[in-house]
Design a protein around this nucleic acid. Structure first.
Lengths: 226, 226
DNA sequence: GCCTAGGGTACAGTATACAAAATAATGAAA
DNA sequence: TTTCATTATTTTGTATACTGTACCCTAGGC
């Protein structure tokens, strides 16, 4: 009878959803692992119903694959998909910056600079764990200030998918430093007001992230397919 | 005991899902309408379970809003959201064209030209009903040839959301003609191999669609909010 | 030895019963 | 008449029992 992590969710379904999602993203449950309603239900001490519904949500989010009357399997991604997500993210986050600048330029720049200061602090202290937080926050600030719930969720979902693999290399100082530098370039471009430069900076940053993933994660194995 | 439309779906859940989705998109069920598990279940002669799960899917797709222990409501969109979706679509479909061109340029152009020929045929015959089909197909061809399941679904979802409102004005000859012209411009740009021109054409096309919706649908009322 | 058929198992899919919560309705007191 | 508390009602959330299907494995024929 395992304890669930997240408390604020109202329904069991949501708790289970976040719980399993976290386990998949952290890698506690690996791609190709099978998820069985009844087993999970027993593990966390509930009935099949909420588990089942949580799994359906995860399926829609493309974190698990459901084969009717057979079972659920944790989904994995191959290199190609990582590349695709990177490009999609670049396009969408570019858009997000445009919107955010148009709506609240000053606040955006201010928030991002404060965030970058924090990123630096944690890197120099060697606290990569803390850095990852602010890395995520950087992109979140942009998406939030863009002022579109839809865009926000879209970016978050895509970012989550990447983080799942990125988490395996973001804890290296060099990777983190490259990432920080990418963020700085983006902010510079925003401050200059040069949208083309922003687009390039965003794309470069994400290509960097992609390459890190491809190098560190997919170096040898491509048994991650699903 | 209403008949369900789609046959190929294996599970009742999927049938119900598509059934309700169609009704929402067609407007048979209007924004703000309440959806009650038990009632729907009775209507289509099944139990609450599959209905419930279908509604959850629709919630994830943002077609309905679910308030725990209170009920489900059909979601509506305001002007702002329509605008946002247009811009997101422009960004993503621009990307889709890039990928499709890179991977199978000739086939893409060929398919699109054939599609446009069909569009023209139906417009000149005044068969706007048929035109709508090929309008959708045009964007589908691009997304499919881009070769990314993820991108495909993304574009389809966003397009569906717009179609929900666009359907109210696409049946006017002028709107359809403007749309056709937009498609032609896109294909021209693709053939020229000018990606900047493509991006502009896509954006223009979608802005056109947006303006049509804003003009014909949101002209007076903004009681569509949800 | 290989292929096929039949039955058993392990799941998810569906139905139904019950619990919990939010809202609406009711009635009494100020 | 208004307001507040209390009760009914409505509707989802959860639990559980049952059904249906895909897969595996074994046995029997070729």
């Amino acid at each position: 009878m395992k304890k669930l992590i997240i408390k604020k969710d109202k329904t069991i379904r949501q708790k289970v959803y976040h719980h399993i999602r976290e386990e998949i993203l952290k890698g506690t449950i690996a791609p190709k692992d099978r998820l069985i309603e009844a087993k999970i239900a027993e593990e966390i001490g509930t009935s099949r119903t909420p588990v089942r519904e949580a799994l359906h949500n995860l399926e829609l989010e493309k974190l698990v694959i459901s084969i009717p009357r057979v079972g659920y399997v944790v989904r994995g991604m191959d290199m190609e998909e990582v590349e695709q997500i990177c490009e999609i993210r670049a396009a969408i986050e570019g858009l997000a910056i445009e919107w955010a600048v148009r709506k609240q330029r000053d606040r955006l720049i201010q928030s991002l600079k404060r965030n970058i200061a924090n990123q630096k602090k944690h890197i120099t202290k060697g606290n990569l764990n803390g850095y990852v937080e602010f890395d995520a926050q950087f992109h979140d600030i942009i998406a939030r200030l863009a002022g579109s719930e839809r865009l926000l969720e879209l970016t978050q979902t895509l970012r989550r998918h990447m983080l799942r693999y990125r988490i395996q290399c973001i804890y290296m100082t060099e990777t983190a430093e490259r990432s920080l530098h990418g963020h700085e370039r983006i902010v510079d471009a925003i401050e200059k007001g040069d949208f083309v430069e922003v687009a390039v900076a965003v794309k470069t940053h994400l290509i960097q992230a992609r390459d890190d993933i491809l190098y560190y994660v997919f170096r040898d194995a491509d048994d991650n397919k699903a």
